[in-house]
Nucleic acid binder design. Structure first.
Lengths: 337, 337
DNA sequence: GTTAGCACTTGGGCATGTTGAGTGCTAAGG
DNA sequence: CCTTAGCACTCAACATGCCCAAGTGCTAAC
């Protein structure tokens, strides 16, 4: 009994199952891979693999399919991250041409990633903690409604409405804008909560209440841009996937719509030294994703924001991982990570 | 043979089919509705309805289901738009509390609408043609990259990057900002293309090239906000729907992802005097939606932007129409339509 | 114009039989 | 100790045949 061969068998099972989408048996295995032994031997190996919980048989006389644990071993120890094809490289380079603001870039990126992988792609907006304030703007929409706009040097724009307790004049706003801007222009966004109170304190009493409201408004904007938003593409790929997976699409779509869930999931995925992190089936904290896997990695400054792909547990991990990694790297380059 | 009863039968068929999701037969019909005649009579009526192409039988010995044409007649001539329940009214009022910027409001609105109808809800961003320029901002991201921000008095913020041909200084931008702002503040967005060239022409020659680039950038922003964006919610409801519809989910998801398709579809739906427009099954211009219906209506100033719901042909039209209409009205009120 | 009655069609459910893929085990061979 | 051939066994998938219930269309009577 050779340990290496056992792993080889597991690899073959995973690969064939991903490819043919049906349980794979010992005979088919020896035919399709040159393992140098007979099917009987494979059967013995398979029995052991099953004992260890790496593969399972849906019913007595069917082939085996990998378990979550099997995929995990496959991903961790067996698979190599395949290099991308030339065509794929070209797609990445060309589709990300034509720079525009962050939003545009991210949108094109997920679209690209979902096409490369034939799966759902998700990207988290970059954390702005390290970004600095470039500009703020207060705009009077109605006597008591103020639109606050915060522009970061990364090119990201956040906006939100602040309700004032009393009528406000344009002059007040202009004055406050100057005060705020003077003090916080160039500050890191995540330091705002420490800087803003002193600005408010220095305001003339008549403006202080308003200044405080606006200050909180700005904090909220800075905070919102931390990790609250995401973009996705390729939902239609879920339906194409496979029938049995298609039946369980509901929960997955729900998870995707609950951006909070996805954002938590992405954030919680520890950074893997090898570059991409994989979360398989029931490893996912969210129940609706128990038959799905997520392949993700960080990008941008400090790899703080995440980009990833979501698909059925039975996915082509090597290729998916390669695509995610390549796209993330390229994205980092564009955004000046 | 009474014409009114025939319509009554059609109504009953539509209602029962929507309710029980299976073909409805003559016997079940007389049991569930007090039509005052026997099943044999109903059968005669049904034969006629079938002749007219309003209903069809999936196979010889099954009940009948409405055709697209049947639904159409139902929607046009038979159904009343049901008033919303008190609970639904309350939901609308409460969920749209807490005003914020347009984006926030629309997001909460689609979410609400999708929950009310258990379907996919879609909303088109308001046209900004009538909106006016409140503010513009040019921000230097890199020596040759400028972020242009256009803020409309509706509270909408559009941003985009302009690439300059040569290095640009902050002073140039400040000067140009003042020039542009002086000339176009308060102008209607759709008049920008007429106003901007004269501003450019009045610039000193050294700035003219840059001014022209920025001018086009602003036009692009104004144009983009015309109708290019939409928000949706409730995709997960597609999966819940029904098995046979679930199988054809793929094309529908594709349509939803191709925002262009959806936007065209919404824009093309003529305004109906009764308040809501319905597009049923194959009436839809897009093939992937041949088993889906769209219920939509305009909202906001001039009812120019659209909000609607998308679901299987077999949907509860009266309730859906009521929900769409109510939400649209409320939305118009909030946005000051 | 309506209705009761009836013959007819047909998909769905069920019991039964058959097939083939795939397994586990055992005994023999390196 | 590992490998392998051989074989008995299991079981989903498919096919076949049968019956039933639902539903229809038609006809003749009211």
């Amino acid at each position: 009994m050779s340990e290496p061969r056992k792993l080889e068998v597991l690899r073959a099972i995973v690969e064939d199952y991903v490819h043919f989408r049906e349980p794979v048996g010992s005979k088919a295995l020896v035919e399709r891979h040159h393992l140098g032994v007979s099917s009987a031997t494979i059967r013995n190996d398979m029995a052991l693999l099953e004992e260890e919980g790496l593969i399972a048989a849906p019913h007595t006389s069917a082939g085996r399919i990998p378990t979550d644990k099997g995929y995990r071993l496959f991903v961790d120890r067996i698979s190599d991250v395949k290099p991308l094809s030339a065509a794929e490289r070209r797609a990445i380079h060309s589709l990300l041409e034509g720079p525009d603001d962050v939003e545009d870039i991210l949108e094109r990126t997920v679209r690209l990633l979902s096409q490369l992988t034939n799966q759902v792609a998700v990207v988290q907006f970059p954390h702005l903690s390290r970004a600095r304030v470039r500009h703020i703007e207060f705009i009077l929409l109605a006597p008591r409604r103020i639109l606050a706009v915060l522009i970061a040097d990364s090119g990201k724009v956040e906006q939100g409405v602040v309700e004032a307790g009393a009528d406000v004049t344009d002059e007040d706003l202009t004055a406050l804008r100057a005060r705020f801007l003077g003090s916080i222009a160039g500050s890191q966004l995540d330091l705002l909560p420490q800087v803003l109170p002193s600005v408010v304190a220095l305001c003339p009493p008549s403006l202080r209440a308003l200044a405080s409201l606006l200050g909180h408004g700005l904090e909220r904007l800075a905070d919102r841009s931390r990790d609250e938003r995401m973009v996705m593409a390729g939902t239609a790929n879920l339906a194409r996937s496979n029938v049995d997976f298609a039946l369980s699409i509901g929960p997955v779509l729900e998870a995707l719509e609950e951006q909070v869930v996805m954002l938590r999931l992405l954030s919680d995925m520890a950074e893997d030294p090898r570059g991409v992190t994989v979360s398989i089936g029931r490893e996912n904290p969210y129940d609706g994703l128990s038959e799905a896997s997520v392949v993700a990695t960080g990008y941008g400054p400090g790899s703080s924001a995440k980009i990833g792909v979501l698909g059925p547990t039975r996915m082509d991990y090597p290729n998916t991982m390669a695509a995610v990694r390549a796209v993330a790297r390229y994205l980092s380059r564009i955004l000046g990570g």
